[in-house]
Design a protein around this nucleic acid. Sequence first.
DNA 1: GGGGCGGCTTGAACACGTTCAAAATCACCC
DNA 2: GGGTGATTTTGAACGTGTTCAAGCCGCCCC
Lengths: 277, 277
Amino acid sequence: MENDAPAARTPPAPPPGDSRPPGTSRTESGPESSPESQPDHPRAAAKPSKSEQTRSLILETALRLFQDRGYDKTTMRAIATEAGVSVGNAYYYFESKEHLIQGFYDRVTNDHIEAAQARLRGRTDFASRLQVTLEAWLDAAEPYHGFSVQFFRNAADPDSPLSPFSAESYPARQTVVDLYRDVLAGSAMKLDAEMAEILPELLWLHQMGIVLFWVYDRSPDSARTRDFVRRTTPMVARITSLSRYKLIRPLVRDAEKLVRDFIVPDGIGTHERPPLR
Amino acid sequence: MENDAPAARTPPAPPPGDSRPPGTSRTESGPESSPESQPDHPRAAAKPSKSEQTRSLILETALRLFQDRGYDKTTMRAIATEAGVSVGNAYYYFESKEHLIQGFYDRVTNDHIEAAQARLRGRTDFASRLQVTLEAWLDAAEPYHGFSVQFFRNAADPDSPLSPFSAESYPARQTVVDLYRDVLAGSAMKLDAEMAEILPELLWLHQMGIVLFWVYDRSPDSARTRDFVRRTTPMVARITSLSRYKLIRPLVRDAEKLVRDFIVPDGIGTHERPPLR
DNA sequence: GGGGCGGCTTGAACACGTTCAAAATCACCC
DNA sequence: GGGTGATTTTGAACGTGTTCAAGCCGCCCC
């Protein structure tokens, strides 16, 4: 939407450098997440610059209102007013209303990883590790089930920067893939080296599938999804374990190639799709 | 969205009866498609009432503009102007801009069914029947690949009437399920009677999966999706054939129950399965 | 102090989807 | 023809997401 043909009225160009104000890594500035872009002060616990304060104030307010009134009924004006800033200011920190949802996603991801790691400690059975990891996600996401649909509407658009396959989503995605790498590594399961490299990504995809299921699930407390996880995890584990055998590996490779093809590389921008025909 | 809390400003009630103006069956009134829903006047070839003319004029215009400029860049004002009517008039016939997309979907569905039936004639091998059916869909949909994303954004919202699982989508969905019933019935494959009842729905779901893949597929002429279909169809056929065996059937039943749970029942008449053709 | 300079903030203005009360047109009967 | 009620059509107005030119503020250097 932003790199479409200009709206014919936009004169010069974007004011802030190119995209994001400072201190704006996609994965929320959790206590000790991966010191990604700028490993400036790995120690300095909190240096909430004025800018960062404003940013998170807006985000907090938005998420609160989203939960209270739902996404659609929360206007940007309301968010701004409630946060005590101007609309324009909200847009200075977030490219669009939808980008605020990314905040929710980042938060869930962080909570998930933390909770999962706690539950994984001491467990070595792979199926069990996989199951607790997925359940940890469900627990982390449950409070936001109400407007998760909004998030998924964007996920369905491969062009949206909010799509889990997008380049912009790369850091967040990688964090989760790493989690699954750990789920595998910490298990007693024997694995081929190449498969150990490939499987985490596929397990991430599997989680995406579960999430899709969950979005559609209306049962109280997402009981149906939980049931689904409980029942299918052993199957997935079995398949994973089969990847040891030469016979199966090519299949796994194919699957991985497939995923990789859909992930838009962290390179030049979006394949501008011409207006068709 | 329409049955949320009222907008507090809408005084009495909707002006047109309850929902749709006359002559507005969901499956498009193609020139000589299958005289489906109402075989009232099997003869009267065309009685395009003024109302119906206006409606289809608007739809045609919209679809044309969508193809020319893309969905986002086509404004309701542009559609109305181009069609020579007022914006309000467009809204008289279509609840929203997104509902216009339903027109595209209906059209593709009709084209698909027609093409599939032609290609099915003479074929008895199930795998082959399945494959040509899916390929027929790809061919029918290709011209609209450009804005298929738009359609799928809504599909991702279980609440949207545009979701393939919605009650409003019931007729269109049923038409396709019937097609798959035929794909099965016309094949040489032996089937358990109960499975024959259940499988068409699952094959429909399978098609939805392919569609999802296709939406994301950027390869020229959707080559990757075609490849995918070619490679996975035999597998699906094998699984289908396995449903003959007692051991597998419960699994199929489970899968079907799952689908059924997500499909929102058609308002009043719970799940009546209408006479199949 | 003054003069930049760059990050931050503002709010009016814009474009677009959508609504609605009123007007126009049609259908039908006396 | 004329009346009457339904159907269709109109376009101004509204609310919302988004943009942008202009202003503000803190900081550094002379």
